[in-house]
């Protein structure tokens, strides 16, 4: 029994190391002085140096280093933009997903299953490949070079999954829950807002984190739709930096931007799993 437990522990550690190593590795690189970057070991740090990180904040103006002109790095602006896009996407995704899921899962109009499937089938269209006509849509809507474009597209990408899990959850929620609220004199809307919505908190968190993951995973669309450096998100901004051969600064930026995201995810990780579980009970 204890041998098995030991093996289990070892495998757990292995999973942790496997998951963390790449992050550790890039963090180590980002903390290196140029000298150590070339002559040190790639696996550990002798002399941590935060220059790559401070550069993100100093670089508000273009500057010259050696023969290279280092472009402006309005990192704080990028962070703010990312946050804006994220908040917008979350609001739009959840705002659209909740009523849709409730309608599909609870009211179950004829053909609700087909509706849900069609919605989900939109994943069969590789959105990232559609960017040329997508760009036309965005221009037609007058949203080019605007954060709203990304908000729309990200929401579109996250929605089907969110609708799926929320409707699965609502489908199996006992009807008595709203009925008792209705009997107590609440209007259907109030019953939904005060009873059903709080009960689905975990599933909402799961949907929100999935949206966060979707938004966080994109680089390409952001770099296509946002051209003005001041308007770019962190991903788009850092992505273009490779041209300047400043990849370690870019890596530092990745880490900095990741900190709040990771903090939020760590905080809600358990709830995320609980939410998914709640949606999966009694079949997906």
């Amino acid at each position: 029994m204890s041998a098995r437990r030991l093996r289990h522990g070892a495998l757990l550690l292995l999973a942790a190391v496997y998951s963390l190593f790449p992050i550790y590795f890039i963090t180590v690189q980002s903390l290196k002085t140029p000298h150590e970057d070339v002559f040190g070991s790639p696996l550990w740090l002798a002399d941590p140096d935060f220059e790559n990180y401070t550069a993100l904040f100093e670089g508000a103006e273009a500057r010259v280093r050696g023969f290279v002109i280092i472009p402006r790095v309005p990192f704080l602006a990028w962070l703010a933009n990312s946050a804006l896009v994220l908040v917008g996407s979350l609001a739009l995704t959840l705002g659209a997903a909740v009523p849709a899921a409730y309608a599909l899962g609870r009211l179950r109009p004829p053909g609700w299953r087909a509706c849900r499937r069609v919605l989900f089938a939109s994943y069969a269209v590789p959105q990232t490949i559609l960017f040329i006509p997508l760009y036309q849509v965005i221009v037609r809507l007058g949203l080019d070079d605007s954060h709203a474009a990304l908000v729309l597209i990200y929401s579109m990408m996250a929605l089907p999954f969110c609708v799926w899990i929320l409707s699965a959850y609502y489908r199996h929620l006992p009807r008595e829950i709203e009925e008792s609220a209705l009997v107590e004199g609440a209007t259907p809307v109030r019953a939904f807002l005060r009873v059903v919505l709080p009960m689905s908190r975990n599933v909402l968190v799961a949907a929100a984190l999935f949206t966060l993951g979707t938004v966080g995973n994109d680089f390409m669309l952001a770099s296509i739709f946002l051209l003005d450096p001041e308007k770019q998100t962190v991903a788009a901004g850092l992505g273009v930096m490779d041209v300047s051969l400043e990849e370690l600064v870019a890596v530092a930026g990745v880490n900095l931007a990741a900190i709040p995201v990771v903090a939020v995810c760590a905080l809600f990780a358990r709830t995320y799993v609980r939410g998914l579980t709640a949606a999966m009970l009694e079949g997906a």
């Binding site: 995973n217 680089f219 850092l238 870019a250 990745v254 990780a269």
Partner: peptide, 20 residues
């Protein structure tokens, strides 16, 4: 730890990853 790779914003991590 296992949750982290997914939580780490992929759109930018892939940049770091690729250059590494």
């Amino acid at each position: 730890a296992v949750f982290l790779p997914w939580a780490y914003p992929g759109g930018i991590t892939v940049i770091a990853w690729y250059w590494m």
